[in-house]
Write a protein that binds this DNA or RNA. Structure first.
Length: 634
DNA sequence: GATGTCACG
DNA sequence: ACGTACGTGACATCA
């Protein structure tokens, strides 16, 4: 047995690490004496816990509020067996506390120890989820933050060691980078052992503080439980991952590389050395006689896609406007940047994220945004280009299966109608009307034009986002007078929208600048951006519609088909014969009533690849394996 | 690390 | 009194 300590609150807390198999009995004896939930953490070789390597975990730590035990499972079978036994004892006993448990440690330990993921989660509380329900903001946004260090500072001891940051410093002193430090640091390095134990001591102490705070703030236990369910469901999707078409992706990466090289060579002939330097691009364009008038927030000359597109005589989708002679530099810069981004952020990123089975496992952060919205990283598959099928084509349904996408229909508008009780909006939805046309008709009369519908749509979004007439004018290009008239008419038609916004702001002022969502979620407002309250309410409630839908899907036995949540959409894979039924079943889980407003969904069944859903029907047979084999051109 | 840009809902 | 477009992740460049 080796003994270490972790300094906290002016004391030295014991950290014990069994060194020989016979030491493990002491650990199990200690564990069986615990009457409170035990914190569990793991140290791994890096962040790729789902790489498919079952030996990716080096050590599993267990801690009470007073004492920590580190079990170095890399030392062999008996150590792994002790960790496995201990986890089962906690699952069937006092329970587990973990920080980022659902998305990191539980998946890692599931792979490492073979314990079913659901069992690891069923008697566990994730302190990261709890902390986001107290305050969803990052430190940079003025919040408490959700990492162990800022939470420990706030709730336990501001002088607590920065276990992650200090360890990184140790790596550097050993000549290691952060990327390899966790893998190569000696198991018995005293800081590694001390801080490994420190993490579970801190987590064990954090849980009662957070649970108490949630009670004091009146956050419903129902919401806490719901978030743990949502995180577990998304954890399953993360573990399963997405199947990548490796051959296609490699070919695509090569093609994009060639396109980037070709276009960059053209850009160079105009004296621009760095494609990513807006300053150089702007300088060259001005040198060609173009006038660039727009400025960025930082005061620099703006040279983004909208500026370049105008010079290239194109709209934002790349269609010719036939208004002027295209500037050849602007054309080449647009093409080169697009190819470069698509290669590095997408194709290359997919290939470097591959696991041993040809799958990628994007990290699903179920409560990342300050509205509770999810985000997806490594790679960011929620943000793949939707105007072109090529990138999404990289992802495949399982062999013999088809890709399914089910999305909510205009969910944010419907949520707004429901939350604010907007009478005429609710009527239009019940009648099955297109809401933007409905608004256009009320505002501009029965002879409204497509242009009027466009303005109405922009106002519909603009109001939810807190925008004003100027922004809508910029968006639509319509005359300012017409936009102002339409905004005024919008508020006359739907007076409840402004009334609800005022009420939410008033309530926030009397509640520490926090507006509470319909599910009881705390949404802190920025003092100088209180107009964002409508968006926070709507975006957050829409996020909870998705979360509830995911829970409905699990209850309906659909979890094995689910692959990815995308804000108002769910991606799934199902055997070709059942795909239509599965799509309808998922759609049913995304259909419910919200304060008298129907929330509805639209299932779509594609072919073998995700990209097939983004192809015109007549191109599907040429570009998608399933459609080609099915002999269906349309 | 800040800034600008570009991809999504 | 007036007006404010919301939420993300990733990459390249530059200080």
């Amino acid at each position: 047995m080796r003994h270490y300590t972790f300094p906290l609150l002016g004391r030295e807390f014991p950290v014990s690490t069994p060194e020989r198999p016979e030491d493990l009995a002491h650990f199990i004896a200690w564990l069986s004496r615990q009457t409170q939930p035990v914190a569990v953490d793991s140290e791994t070789h890096g962040l790729d816990i789902l790489s498919g390597d079952p030996e990716y975990v080096r050590m599993v730590q267990f801690g009470s509020q007073e004492e920590a035990w580190n079990i170095p499972t890399e030392l062999g079978m008996s150590f792994k067996e002790a960790a496995r036994t201990a986890l089962w004892m906690l699952i069937d006993g006092v329970g587990i506390t973990g920080h980022n448990w659902a998305a990191f440690d539980a998946p890692a330990l599931h792979v490492h120890l073979g314990i079913p993921y659901d069992d690891l989660c069923k008697n566990a509380v994730d302190t990261m989820l709890c902390s986001k329900l107290v305050d969803p903001r990052a430190v940079q946004e003025g919040g408490i933050g959700s990492s162990l260090k800022p939470l420990s500072d706030h709730y336990i001891d501001p002088t607590a060691a920065d276990t992650q940051g200090d360890l990184t410093a140790v790596f550097r002193s050993l000549g290691l980078t952060k990327a390899v430090g966790f893998s190569r640091i000696d198991l018995w390095h005293p800081i590694y052992q001390s801080y490994g134990g420190g993490d579970v001591l801190l987590t064990a102490r954090l849980r009662p503080k957070l649970e108490n705070k949630l009670r004091l703030l009146g956050v419903p236990q129902r919401l806490v439980d719901y978030e743990h369910e949502v995180a577990r469901i998304c954890g399953h999707m993360q573990i399963r991952g997405l199947l990548l078409d490796q051959d296609y992706t490699r070919r695509l990466a090569d093609e994009l590389g060639e396109e980037e090289a070709t276009q960059t060579a053209i850009v160079r002939t105009y004296g621009v050395e760095k494609l990513g330097s807006p300053a150089q691009i702007a300088e060259a364009l001005i040198g060609m006689g173009e006038s660039l008038t727009e400025r960025t927030a930082g005061g620099a000359v703006k040279a983004d896609k909208s500026v370049l597109s105008a010079l290239a005589d194109m709209d934002l989708y790349g269609n010719r406007l036939h208004v002027r002679t295209p500037n050849p530099l602007a054309v080449a810069v647009i093409k080169a940047k697009r190819a470069g981004k698509w290669k590095s952020a997408y194709a290359d990123n997919f290939l470097t994220s591959l696991d041993r089975n040809g799958r990628i496992h994007p990290g699903i952060r179920t409560m990342q945004a300050r509205t509770g919205r999810m985000s997806v990283t490594n790679p960011a598959v929620q943000t793949l280009p939707s105007g072109d099928w090529k990138i999404r084509r990289c992802f495949l349904a399982e062999p013999g299966e088809r890709i399914i996408s089910v999305d909510f229909q205009a969910v944010e508008l419907r949520v707004l109608a429901a939350l604010a009780g907007v009478k005429r909006m609710k009527e239009a939805i019940s009648l099955g009307r297109d809401l933007h046309s409905f608004t256009a008709e009320l505002v501009f009369g029965p002879d409204f034009t497509p242009k009027h519908r466009k303005i109405s749509k922009a106002i519909g979004f603009g109001v939810v986002y807190g925008g004003g007439a100027a922004t809508i004018q910029r968006q639509t290009g319509a005359p300012m007078e017409e936009v102002k008239r339409a905004v005024a008419a919008y508020h006359r038609t739907y007076p409840e929208v402004r009334r609800a916004a005022n009420r939410w702001q008033r309530e926030a002022f009397s509640n520490g600048m926090v507006t509470t969502s319909v599910t009881g979620r705390r949404l802190p407002l920025d003092r100088d951006r209180t107009y964002a309250v409508t968006n926070y309410q709507v975006q957050s409630a829409a996020r909870d519609c998705l979360g509830q839908a995911l829970i409905n899907m699990e209850e309906a036995g659909l979890l094995p088909y689910l692959r990815l949540p995308v804000h108002d959409e769910v991606i799934a894979s199902a055997p070709a014969r059942e795909a239509d039924d599965i799509g309808r079943a998922i759609g049913k889980c995304m259909t419910f009533d919200l304060f008298g407003v129907p929330i509805e969904s639209d299932p779509e069944v594609g072919g073998r690849s995700w990209g097939s859903l983004y192809l015109p029907d007549d191109q599907r047979a040429a570009h998608d394996e399933w459609y080609a084999n099915a002999g269906l051109a349309t």
